[in-house]
Amino acid sequence: MRDPYLLLGIPEDADDLAVEAAYLSAIKACPPERDAVRFQALRTAYEQLRTNRDRVAHELFQTAPPELADLLDRAAPVGEPRRPARALVEALLRGDD
């Protein structure tokens, strides 16, 4: 499961308005007619983080391991096509931030 914070491009301390604004901006950039899979992923991410209560539940009960795409997103920000350093990937796998 992709990290909803990374998918919406928001920090983990974002409030309700920031989550909604990021979601609306993301679906305007990627409507369902263009990419239905990404749109559904954005919708799922928004539903997980919609309110403060939802964000707390996500933090407490989300136990799925990170996907490779999440690790690569954290290792190399968008716009920098490069291979991440081995030490950085190992640190991410250990859970170091």
Rank of each mutant, 00 (worst) to 15 (best):
M1I: 04
M1E: 04
M1G: 03
M1C: 02
R2P: 13
R2N: 07
R2M: 03
D3Q: 01
D3E: 05
P4H: 08
P4Y: 12
Y5R: 00
L6S: 07
L6T: 05
L7D: 01
L7T: 09
L8N: 00
L8C: 00
L8D: 00
I10C: 00
I10N: 00
P11E: 06
D13F: 03
D13R: 01
A14G: 02
D15G: 08
D15F: 03
D15I: 01
D16W: 01
D16P: 00
A18T: 13
A18I: 03
A18M: 07
V19S: 06
E20K: 12
A21F: 14
A21M: 14
Y23D: 11
Y23R: 04
L24W: 11
S25V: 06
S25Q: 14
A26H: 07
A26C: 11
I27C: 01
I27P: 00
A29Q: 10
A29M: 09
P31F: 05
P31Q: 10
P31K: 09
R34P: 01
R34E: 09
R34C: 04
D35H: 05
A36L: 12
A36P: 04
V37G: 06
V37D: 11
R38W: 13
R38L: 15
F39I: 05
Q40D: 13
A41H: 07
A41R: 08
A41E: 12
L42T: 09
L42I: 09
R43A: 02
A45K: 01
A45G: 03
A45S: 05
Y46C: 02
Y46D: 02
E47R: 13
E47V: 04
Q48M: 07
L49W: 03
L49M: 04
L49Q: 03
R50F: 05
T51D: 13
T51K: 03
R55E: 12
V56N: 09
V56R: 12
V56F: 10
H58T: 09
H58A: 08
H58M: 06
E59C: 08
E59P: 02
L60I: 10
F61I: 10
Q62Y: 15
Q62R: 14
T63H: 14
T63V: 15
A64I: 08
P65G: 11
P66A: 15
E67R: 08
E67N: 07
L68C: 05
A69S: 12
L72V: 09
D73I: 04
D73H: 10
R74A: 08
A75G: 07
G79L: 08
E80Y: 06
E80I: 06
E80D: 07
P81S: 12
P81R: 14
P81F: 11
R82K: 15
R83A: 13
R83Y: 10
P84D: 09
R86T: 15
R86L: 15
A87D: 09
L88F: 08
L88V: 14
E90W: 02
E90G: 00
L92R: 05
L92A: 07
L93H: 03
R94F: 01
R94P: 00
R94L: 02
D96M: 12
D96H: 14
D96Q: 15
D97N: 03
D97A: 04
